[in-house]
Amino acid sequence: MSGGRGAGSRNKRRQVSDEERAAAVEDYRESVARLQHTAYRNLRQWIAYATVFVAVIATWMLFIGQVTPASFPWYAVSVLSGAFGLATYFVREPRPRLYVLAVAVVLAVVGVTGMFLTD
C-alpha cells in the first residue's frame, strides 16, 4: 500500500554538498529577482496605460463638445497626464522614468477629480 517505499523513507534525504546548496539558493534568488523585475515593469506599464486612457477620454470629451469653460482646465490637465504617461516610454533611466510616471499619475488624479467636481 505504500507504493514501494520503505518505512521511514520520508526522512531519508539525498545528501548535497554546500556548493550544490549554494548554487540552488543562487538560482532561486535569480528567479525571484527576474519575477519581481517583470512584475514591476508590467505594473509601471499598466499605470502609464491608465494615464494615457484618461487622456484619450478627456480628448474625446473636448472634441465632442462636452467640456464647459469651468471644466476645461481639468480636461487639459488630464491630457497633459497622458503626455507624461507616453513620455515614460521615451525615458530610459529607471529613476527619472519613475518620476515622470509619478507626475503622470498625479496629473491624472488631479484632472479626473477636477472633472467630477466641476460637472
Rank of each mutant, 00 (worst) to 15 (best):
S17R: 04
Q15Y: 07
V77T: 13
V32D: 07
E93I: 00
F63P: 01
W46C: 07
V91R: 01
S71Q: 14
V109H: 06
L86K: 06
V109F: 09
R44Y: 11
Q45T: 13
A23R: 12
N11Y: 10
V67N: 12
V32M: 08
W46M: 11
S78H: 08
A58K: 10
R92V: 05
A108T: 02
E30P: 00
G85T: 10
E19R: 07
R21M: 03
A23W: 00
G114F: 08
R41N: 14
L80M: 06
S9F: 02
K12M: 09
F53H: 04
Q66T: 14
P96T: 02
V25W: 01
V67Y: 13
R34L: 10
F84K: 09
A39F: 11
M115P: 01
A24L: 07
L80S: 10
R29G: 00
D119N: 12
A7V: 11
A104E: 03
A23H: 01
T118R: 13
G111M: 06
W74H: 15
T88P: 06
D18N: 07
A102G: 14
Q66M: 12
H37G: 14
V103L: 14
L86M: 15
I57V: 14
T38A: 15
S81V: 04
A24N: 03
H37W: 09
A104L: 07
T38C: 05
V105H: 07
E26C: 00
W46V: 11
